[in-house]
């Protein structure tokens, strides 16, 4: 499977707290319009490839206060009803992997709603990321992923650091993407 996915701007009105929904109310068009995704069975697990256009990558953030790194995430529902838009809900988690350009490895992520994401070191994973000719290409080599194996669906998110994107300021798939 290698698909082009049109992305949407994650709705800021849903973001927790009183600040982000108002301060970023103008963020209605996605900063990253589309991404390509390939999800393939790998050796004892999965290989996920994400690629998207990014004119000016941000890879370094250390020793700066106002710089945000490029990032992407892919996640799957733990239950058939787990909502994608809110990153899951209580008792209906989503789980997956987060890559950030200023870090060497991947984070394993799990969330039960906006603002609840837990990050932990993703053991048994590998990642390679290349930026070339205005595009990021990130290849995630993942171990067994029971949620994906069971639900056969993923969602994805892309953050462009140069546009101050982080947290709920992101471009996301407009729903679950079926994995064959």
């Amino acid at each position: 499977m290698n698909r082009k996915i049109l992305l949407m701007s994650a709705p800021v009105a849903m973001q927790p707290g009183g600040y982000v929904p108002v301060a970023y109310a103008d963020r209605t068009t996605p900063v990253t319009a589309a991404a390509e995704i390939a999800v393939e069975p790998g050796s004892g697990g999965w290989r996920v490839t994400l690629a998207w256009a990014c004119p000016q990558p941000v890879r370094e953030t250390v020793r700066e206060t106002d710089r945000f790194a490029d990032a992407c995430a892919v996640f799957a529902p733990e239950a058939p009803e787990s909502p994608w838009m809110t990153m899951g809900a209580q008792g209906l988690a989503v789980q997956g992997f987060l890559w950030r350009a200023d870090r060497p490895g991947l984070w394993a992520i799990r969330a039960e709603g906006l603002g609840t994401m837990q990050r932990s070191a993703a053991t048994g994973t590998q990642v390679s990321a290349d930026w070339d000719n205005g595009r990021w290409r990130v290849v995630l080599s993942l171990p067994e992923w029971p949620a994906l194996a069971a639900q056969r669906r993923v969602a994805l998110a892309v953050w462009r650091g140069g546009a101050q994107e982080r947290a709920g300021l992101k471009s996301v798939s407009a729903g679950w993407v079926d994995v064959a």
């Binding site: 973001q15 927790p16 707290g17 009183g18 600040y19 982000v20 603002g115 609840t116 947290a167 709920g168």
Partner: peptide, 10 residues
């Protein structure tokens, strides 16, 4: 506090 209000992770 504006800082409390601003944090999406509470």
């Amino acid at each position: 506090p504006a800082c409390v209000d601003a944090c999406p992770r509470a």
